[in-house]
């Protein structure tokens, strides 16, 4: 078991024939994901990597191949439309990798999805991987992950890989890793993913990696305190970041007290999460809380 993706995942790739779409479609296939179709307007009828049929529209791809998950590599100016296109045919899970989508597009998309039965992960994220099911819907390196019982949720890509690597070093594998994305407005929040991990029988403990900007970590702290019944270890980065500057991610900016790393750490700590003191201590911290529980 895992969250969001598994052996039943039937993956459609939007923007499949571009440089990134092609490269990562192939890596997802290598990992074992059931990639069943691609969409690139104007390229319908082509076959990608000798096995993935390309369609002009999501609707056509949906009718022919019945995907339940979509992975989006469409450029920023068309990405919001791509998300809506996938939601309109009823695709249940949409993972959007694209970085640089205008925030106004994302508030419109979020409002549009509000009453739909669609889960959006991202944008500006590395995606989702469930090593136990050999299923990857994203861009993370294949070989660092091992099957196991730790859930990972993070706003950052490379830092998620770092967490996975440190888990491997202490002999712990992952149930599912979810990158929720570094933009100010993203589909799934920390709380949304923590809820899924809470209900997932295959997850024993959770690593949550946050950063400066916004207050999603504080909402997560409330959830951890009130409802989560699994141990969490949390790392918050950006403690040494200057105020008012955007640290790479569009959402990583200190604009008020809540956005500070220290405030997030305070909230998570008083909610009962184990605070990972240094970025190099992810593995040992989770090891310790597993011993305690």
């Amino acid at each position: 078991m895992s969250i969001l993706i598994n052996k039943e995942t039937r993956l459609l790739v939007q923007g499949a024939t571009g440089r990134e779409g092609r490269f990562h479609s192939s890596k997802c296939l290598d990992y074992g994901t059931n990639v069943i179709a691609g969409v690139t307007p104007g390229r319908g009828g082509e076959v990608l990597l000798d096995e993935i049929p390309i369609y002009n529209t999501v609707e056509e791809a949906f009718e022919e191949t019945n995907p339940n998950t979509s992975l989006i590599f469409v450029p920023p100016r068309f990405a919001a439309d791509a998300i809506i296109e996938a939601a309109d045919v009823g695709i249940h899970l949409i993972v959007c990798i694209t970085e640089g989508i205008p925030v106004h597009d994302m508030v419109r998309v979020s409002s549009y999805l509000r009453n739909k039965d669609t889960i959006l992960v991202g944008p500006n994220c590395p995606g989702v991987i469930s090593p136990g099911d050999q299923c990857k819907v994203g861009i993370m390196p294949n070989d660092i992950h091992t099957p196991g019982r730790i859930g990972v949720v993070s706003r950052s890509g490379t830092l998620t890989y770092e967490a996975v690597f440190q888990l491997t070093m202490v002999g712990l594998g992952q149930s599912t890793c979810v990158g929720i994305g570094g933009d100010p407005v993203v589909g799934s929040s920390f709380v949304d993913i923590l809820k899924l991990f809470n209900d997932d029988e295959a997850t024993d403990a959770i690593i949550m990696i946050g950063e400066i900007g916004g207050s999603g970590e504080q909402l997560a702290a409330e959830y951890i305190k009130d409802e989560l019944n699994k141990p969490v270890a949390s790392l918050i980065v950006g403690q040494s970041a200057p105020a008012g500057r955007r640290m790479g991610h569009a959402g990583a900016i200190v604009t008020g007290n809540d956005a500070l790393a220290s405030e997030k750490i305070k909230a998570l700590s008083s909610a009962g999460a184990a605070i990972i003191p240094r970025p190099g201590d992810i593995g040992v911290t989770i090891e310790e809380i597993l011993k305690d529980n």
């Binding site: 950052s156 490379t158 770092e162 570094g182 990696i209 980065v237 950006g238 040494s240 640290m247 790479g248």
Partner: peptide, 17 residues
């Protein structure tokens, strides 16, 4: 010199410590 914004912030914190 780092790849990735999250890892870059973490690296700053490592120096800071």
């Amino acid at each position: 010199v780092v790849n990735g914004a999250g890892l870059a912030m973490a690296t700053m914190d490592i120096v800071n410590e």
